Amino acid sequence: MGMEDHKLKVFCTVAETKSFSKTSEIIHLTQPAVSLQIQALEEIYETKLFDRSSSFINLTPAGEILYKYAKDILNLYAEAEKEIGKITGLIKGSITIGASTTIGNYVLPSVIADFKKNHPKIKINVFIGNTKRIIDLLNSGGIDIGLVEGETSRHKIKTDPIITDELVFIIPPFHHWAKKKVVSILEITKEPFILREEGSGTRQMIEKYLSEHGINTSDMRIALVLGSTESIKEAVENGMGISIVSKWAARKEIKYGSLRLITPKEEKILRNFSLVMQKNSVLSHAVDEFLAYLKSYPYDTLLSERQ
C-alpha cells in the first residue's frame, strides 16, 4: 500500500465510524496522526471533508464525493494486488481476523499454525473479543473476516456456519457423577454451578437450553460467576462446582484427565461457529486462500486427538 491509499483508508474509516478515536484503534495510529492524515487530504482538495460542528463527525458534500471514489479506488488497489499475486505465484500480504473468545482461544491457533506451514509469507493478525465487538470491527473495516459463536442477525453481513460446537458438562474426576456418561439436565439444580458473566455467548446458549427444560437460573445453586472459561475450568478442577462449556474449550483438560466430560441425557447442546464477512468486500488473494483453508479444514481431528 502506498502513502496515498493509506490516507484514503484512514479517511474511509473515519467516515464509517464517525469517530477519530475508533479510527485510531482500528488503524493503529494515534489520534493526532489520524487528524494529520485527514488534514493532509483537506489540503490536497482545498476544502473541508468533515463537518465537526455537531457532536458527530459528518461528511461534507465534498467528503461524500471523495468517499464514493475512495471506496472504489481501494477496491481497485486490492484487485490489482490480487492479479499481480496470481502471476508471481507468491501469496503474501496480511490477513486480519476477528474471533470471538471460544474460537479465538481454542480453535483458531491450531488452524493458523497448520495454514502457516503452507503459506509462510502470509502475516496473520488476530483480534479476540466477544461476538458484538467482532461485528463492530467488521463493520468498520478493522478486520477482513470474523469468526463468531452464537447468533448474528445483521443485513449487511454474510454469515456462513463452518464448525459445529457442542456444550458439555464439566466435572472434576472425583465428582460423584464421574462414573456416568450422561446425566439428566434436571440434576443440575442439585449441584453448585459456575456460570459465565452476562453478555457471554456461551451463557446465553446455556440459559436458552435450560429454559427449554423449564429451569431458570434462579432455581440453581450458583456458586460463582466468572468472566472467562479458563477461570471456570480452574474452579471446576478445584471442586468448587460443575459447569457447562464448549467441548473445544475443555479438550486439553479432558485429554490429561483433570476434567471429565458428561453430556446431558435430554439432547445435545449444539451451536454453530460462523464465518462473517461484509457482503460486498473485495478480498485479497491471501484472504481468499485462508477462507478456502478454513472451509475445508478437518476440525474433528482436533477434538479426537489422543496422545
Rank of each mutant, 00 (worst) to 15 (best):
S94P: 00
I128L: 03
G141C: 08
V148G: 03
N130M: 05
V126H: 10
G146K: 00
V111G: 04
I97C: 01
T96I: 14
P109K: 06
K116S: 14
K123L: 12
N118R: 14
F127D: 15
V107Q: 03
T159H: 01
G104V: 13
I128Q: 09
K132R: 14
P161F: 08
L147C: 01
D160H: 10
G98D: 02
T96N: 12
N130P: 11
V111N: 04
I124N: 05
I128S: 00
T159R: 15
P109R: 03
E166S: 03
P109A: 01
S140K: 08
I162A: 10
G141N: 06
S110E: 11
I143S: 05
I157C: 02
I122L: 06
K121H: 14
N130S: 11
P120S: 09
D136H: 11
K156Q: 14
L167I: 07
L138G: 08
I122V: 14
D114I: 00
T131C: 12
P120H: 06
P120G: 04
P120E: 09
I143M: 02
G98V: 13
L167P: 00
I135Q: 06
T164Y: 01
A99M: 07
N139Q: 13
L138P: 02
G150F: 05
L138C: 10
K121F: 13
S94Y: 03
R154K: 14
L167K: 04
S140E: 05
T152R: 13
G150S: 04
G98P: 02
P161N: 10
D160F: 01
N118I: 03
T152C: 15
N139T: 13
K123W: 05
H119Q: 11
R154D: 15
L138H: 06
T102F: 04
I134P: 00
E149H: 14
G129R: 11
R154T: 04
I134Y: 03
K132P: 05
K132M: 09
K132D: 12
V111I: 14
T159A: 15
I122P: 11
T159V: 13
I112M: 03
T164I: 04
G129H: 05
P109Q: 02
G98F: 04
A99S: 13
N139R: 15
L108M: 07
I103A: 15
E151S: 13
I122T: 03
I143W: 00
I112F: 02
D136W: 05
L108Q: 04
I134R: 01
S110G: 08
I157L: 02
E149T: 07
K123I: 10
F115I: 09
K116C: 08
K121Y: 15
K121W: 12
T159G: 09
T152G: 08
I143A: 01
I135A: 09
G93H: 08
G142R: 09
S110K: 13
D160S: 12
S153W: 07
L138I: 12
G104W: 00
K116D: 08
S110Q: 10
I112A: 03
L108Y: 00
S110W: 03
I112V: 10
I95L: 11
H155N: 11
G93N: 06
I143Y: 02
R133F: 09
G98N: 03
N125D: 14
L137Q: 10
R154L: 13
V148D: 05
